[in-house]
Structure formats: structure tokens, C-alpha cells
Design a binder for these strands. Sequence first.
DNA 1: GCTCAGGTGGTTC
DNA 2: GAACCACCTGAG
Length: 277
Amino acid sequence: MHRVRLSVADLSIPQISGSGQCFRLNRIAGDRYALVAFGRYLELEQHGDETDFFCTQEEYETVWRQYFDLENDYACYRSAVEERDIYLAHAVSFGSGIRILRQDVWETLISFIISQQNNIKRIKKCIETLCERYGEKRPVAADRCGGFYYTFPDAAALAGTSEAELRACGLGYRSRYIVETAKSVCSNKVDLEAVKKMDLRAAKYELMKLCGVGEKVADCICLFGLHHMDAFPVDTHIRKVMDEHYPAGFPYERYSGCAGVMQQYIFYYDLCGQTKM
DNA sequence: GCTCAGGTGGTTC
DNA sequence: GAACCACCTGAG
């Protein structure tokens, strides 16, 4: 079995998995994780600072290196943290293996519509069901564990469903948002290829034309699907931290170019860090 | 039973 | 504009 072994201190699959930016990266056993992205299936293992990618060198270089944003130097982002900001320093130290994934825009869009008023466990289950029913079934290479995986359904597949069908997937009131959004994307009423070329402000405004996409979801799509590193999604966790630790406002200007990375460190720390300050 | 989970859309003033 | 409130669903 092909394997690419990396020794990168600031890459941690468990942390990325726990940071909730990707709902299709899951622990399958012990240190072993499985991911489905861009129609491909990948298994990974984390042992301390070492990460094993179970794929060929070529696949790693053409697909996964970009996906995990390994060309970017995150130590640089972390060193930008102001020393006196004890809370952020702790958050960054706690989640130092987090990276902002370069995910597919369409998948990010639907995933974060589903995420509203929802918990991570159920979000994952909803997406899994959606993929099983409307995605494409593909075999996992025989030299790995075998079995099957499902790709994320494209816009046409979801535009062809109905609100009732999606409700049967357990999506609740979000079903209408998804059908309407799929139709808007399918008909190019909102052109995702064009959105990819826009700057943060324009992309966010364009995405908010879609049904079920408000400011928070639009920011998530900009950060996780368009890699606009200044996007700063404010949800209930971040709102709480802002009130507690940044009553005078978060210093966005200081973190220009990486505010979104700081958001992820804070989010993960608030969600998974034991020592709440 | 009730609240909560990574909000948004619609109505009302 | 800001302040409500309804909205699916399953876990604790």
C-alpha cells in the first residue's frame, strides 16, 4: 500500500477533524481517519507529529497537499499573536495543528446550511445520509480496506429532489433552503464559478442571495470553501468568547490576512479546550 | 417535558 | 433598522 509520511509539527488530523470545518473527516479506528473530498477517498493516520497519507506520492502532491493547505506556513500566523493576549495565545497553542482546508465551494455551501441550529454529530449524520441517497457510490481501492464510499451529490442531483424527500433525510426545515439553493446554483442564478473569482466582500454578498445563507454561513463558505483568510464567522461560540474576552472588539486589523485562522483556533479551543479561562 | 445545538427568514413596530 | 419568533430533530 502506498503511503506518504509527513513530519509536520503544525498538521494534526485529530485537531482538524475536531475543528468542525469539514464534516467528512472522521476517526474510523484508533489513530486512523477517513476523508472523502472532491470525489476521492483518503485514509490518514496520526502518530504524534507524524502524519501518514495512504495514497501515492502523485496523489498527495496533486490533490492533498493543496487540500490541507500545506504550502502555507501556519507558524507564521501563530507568531502574529500578541503576547499580552493570553486567551488567544492559549487557543493557538491548544490547536496548533489546525489548518484551513481548501474545500469544494458547493459542498461547503450545503454543509453549512445544514449546520444551522444543529450539532456536529447530527450535521455529520445528515450529510452522510444525503451522500448515500444522492451521491455516487464508489469502491475503495482493494489494496486498502475495500468497501464503498459516497461522493457528495452535485447541484443537479439536489435540484432534482423535493423538500419532502429531503425532510425524509432528517434535514427538517433546512430542506426547503437546500432545494431552493440547489436550483439557484444549477440555473446559474448564482454562479459559483464567478463567486470563486470575487473578493471576500463581493463573494459574501453574492452567497447571501441564496436561500438559507445568512451572514454566518456566508462567512463559513468564504473561509472554508473560498479560502478567504479574512472571513471571520461569528456563531454562538465565537459570540460568547467575544463578549467574555474581547468586550472592546476583536483586533481584526492586527490579524489582517489571517483573522479566519484565529477564528478557527478560538472556535476549537472553546469547543474542545478543557481549561476555560 | 424542556433546552440546546456552529442561524435564517419573515413579520412587526 | 432592531426586536421578536417560528422552524426540524435528537441528545442530555
